[in-house]
């Protein structure tokens, strides 16, 4: 998958973000992660086409049945939508 890695000082948990480039909450999620120095990887699903998009959605479906953005995977935990308190909890911040 065509993912982008963002380095950070906090890398004790693997963080992956399924996002849309046009979505305000996805942007805010990225800012939240970056403000907290969290190392993470993201993919903008709306910028993918055809098989690439299908591959990303198939991967996302392994984690959550609903297709909603942002979907944030922290370790084994799946968070749908940006709820800063829950995200903080999942990240151990």
């Amino acid at each position: 998958m065509n993912t982008t890695h963002v380095p950070g000082t906090r890398s004790n948990r693997q963080v992956f973000l399924f996002a849309l480039s046009t979505c305000g909450w996805c942007r805010r999620t990225r800012e939240f992660l970056e403000a907290n120095g969290v190392e993470y990887t993201y993919i903008y699903v709306d910028l993918l086409k055809g098989d690439e998009r299908k591959e990303a959605l198939d991967e996302m479906r392994k984690w959550t049945p609903r297709q909603a953005f942002p979907t944030i995977i922290v370790g084994e935990e799946v968070l749908v939508g940006l709820d800063e308190d829950k995200l903080r909890g999942a990240l151990g911040l």
Partner: peptide
């Protein structure tokens, strides 16, 4: 700030799809 980004997303989708699809959903 949020509203401006969403409006930006609507315009991006207008350019991409020809209509203002919801910026927070996968069109």
């Amino acid at each position: 700030e949020m509203t401006r980004r969403l409006v930006e997303g609507l315009l991006a989708n207008q350019a991409r799809y020809g209509y203002q699809a919801c910026p927070c959903r996968l069109a």
